[in-house]
Nucleic acid binder design. Structure first.
Lengths: 342, 342
DNA sequence: CTGAAAGCGCTTACAG
DNA sequence: CTGAAAGCGCTTACAG
């Protein structure tokens, strides 16, 4: 690494490389990007000198002149729930392979969402934005159109933006039918209320599936069996507590996520109940811990959804057409659900 | 929102705003950034017009001329393990408050790490980089110095870069001493081997604590009791399986993380063992599920570490001095550990 | 195959 | 308080 120019390592710009190589910066630019129009010898020399100078292209300057940022923004309401981190983890390698950087925004609650959309911050910071399972009110959704970047929706759908999702209605039916088939007559549902007052397709659809499946089986989907707790660590436990405290508690519960299911099960057990003998629990997602802990779930291939959403963004940036993708769900029966005994 | 200029919403640049307002772009720049030197009337008018035109500043152009990017890069080996996602989640609001964007890099394994450091990609893409619990070989560490940006280390330490960490030696001692105090004589340890061949302070220190604590108690820290599985979903289960298959299996196990502990417990139970009667398990982290599932752990306040690391990055960017921060750990006793019965 | 020059959209001394 | 102009570091027609 002989920096014989005496300049601090890594502070070189394209002009320095050009000077050192005895060519114009236009030639350096072409050589380094690998575009045709440079002789192999010149290219080799430039590459070598750039390396010697520890030259790194300025993404800002590059972006400014070509008009694209080389970045994709990922927007999620939470970063620490498993669903979101699994999404993120599966998007990362796809974007990396396409040489795109990943800008991550945690946009939690209506206020932050409003601020995010008001500032339209992603518009000039990324070439595309992947909205992941973000609750949104109708008026907010409109703002999305103004962002002037490609929008991909993962884990849900928003108007006519291209999306990757599962059929949440089917997912909910799978879970609830499974419990109905096991002979349960009182079946509760647990969800969290980040979605307060806002439209979020997955949530609405799973609740609808719960209602419709119960109705279809001639069972009562009364409001007390649908408990909503605000998002947070204790949500699942509190929700289960409320259900179990009912005069006529459910013998089975469908939780919106596996993490809620884990907490619900733990709460039930610490209340002296056996799972599934006293109460059955079904979650949703396909959380890896679920296999170990033995939770019946509706697997929605989160990693697959993330990968596909990222690929969709990559395609859009390449100017290709994309079409909406539906990822199949499947019921995975494990120890947390069993026959109704009452 | 009357765009009376007829140009597509959001495509305006500073010159458009200037023209519309009848001022120079210099004045627009000052007005919009809130720097002094613009009359209130002019400022108000400019702000209004910018809003009407849905004007959003070009971060690229801004960054190029002022020489900073307004971004912080977060580098982690995994994004889907709880520890990392909790770190990320706690960094996000701090960076947001400082008006910094978060660029996330999942750098997994030696090959990707080498590529990351070879390209020094973060150097010009962010003003600071927060390295989170990333295993690194010595030679790789050297390259860090070349990045030409502020480096903060979270959840460990790397040479003399400012860091936020816990005392992993103490953490390990707390866990193992707890088991020794309960009367256990055969105490195993489970870890994962992302760290293969590389230096990662936390890992080395916790293993050392395990060895030293056992030695200090006159117990045998034989190699068969230290099991290393490559990182992944099944790691904890496989590791526990290996320990339990030993001719003389341990009666207690210290797992590097709570997630490993969950899996280890599940495996033990599915093997027909009771926890803690037949085997005690202690994890580390302070995973929220641990409270629900009843896992004894060494809480290392992950969210606190993430917050402090992000604050440290913000301070460095503000030109302030920072000093290394040590976050305290504490043993949280729960149901997964109990007296030795053998 | 190579270079001179315009342009991307800002910020920031420097003048007034 | 305001503006003209240089400069940030690239990319990309356009010529040769």
């Amino acid at each position: 690494m002989g920096s014989d120019t005496g300049m601090p390592l890594g502070s070189a710009n394209m002009a320095d490389v050009a000077r050192e190589a005895g060519v114009s910066i236009a030639t350096v630019s072409r050589a380094l990007r690998g575009v045709p129009g440079v002789s192999q010898a010149t290219r080799d020399r430039i590459v070598r000198i750039a390396h010697e100078l520890s030259y790194v292209i300025s993404p800002e300057a590059s972006a400014l002149s070509k008009g694209s940022t080389g970045r994709v923004a990922i927007v999620m309401p939470h970063l620490d729930a498993w669903f979101y981190s699994a999404m993120l983890a599966s998007m990362a390698p796809v974007l990396r392979a396409a040489d795109l950087d990943m800008l991550v925004y945690q946009v939690e609650g209506q206020e932050q969402r409003a601020a995010f959309l008001r500032g339209l911050p992603a518009r000039r910071k990324a070439d595309a934005v992947i909205i992941t399972a973000l609750p949104m009110a109708q008026a907010e959704v409109e703002r999305l159109d103004l962002m002037g970047v490609h929008v991909v929706v993962a884990g849900g759908s928003i108007r006519d933006h291209p999306h990757v999702q599962v059929d949440d209605l089917e997912a909910g039916r799978l879970a609830v039918s499974h419990l109905v088939d096991l002979g349960h007559r009182r079946i509760g549902m647990i969800r969290t209320s980040d979605t307060d007052g806002t439209t979020w397709s997955s949530d609405l659809l799973r609740v609808r599936a719960w209602r419709e499946t119960l109705a279809g089986a001639g069972l009562d989907a009364c409001e007390e069996l649908l408990v909503t707790e605000s998002y947070g660590v204790g949500a699942g436990g509190r929700a289960m507590g409320r259900l179990l405290a009912l005069p006529d508690p459910p013998t089975a519960v469908f939780a919106y996520s596996d993490e809620l299911a884990f907490a619900a099960m733990a709460h039930a057990r610490s209340s002296g109940l056996r799972v599934p003998e006293d109460v059955s629990v079904v979650g949703m997602d396909g959380h890896p811990l679920g296999e170990q802990v033995g939770v019946t779930t509706v697997d929605q291939d989160v990693a697959g959804q993330g990968r596909l959403a990222a690929e969709m963004a990559v395609r859009l940036l390449a100017g290709e057409q994309v079409r909406d993708l539906d990822v199949p769900v499947r019921l995975v029966q494990r120890g947390s659900s069993g026959p109704a005994t009452a």
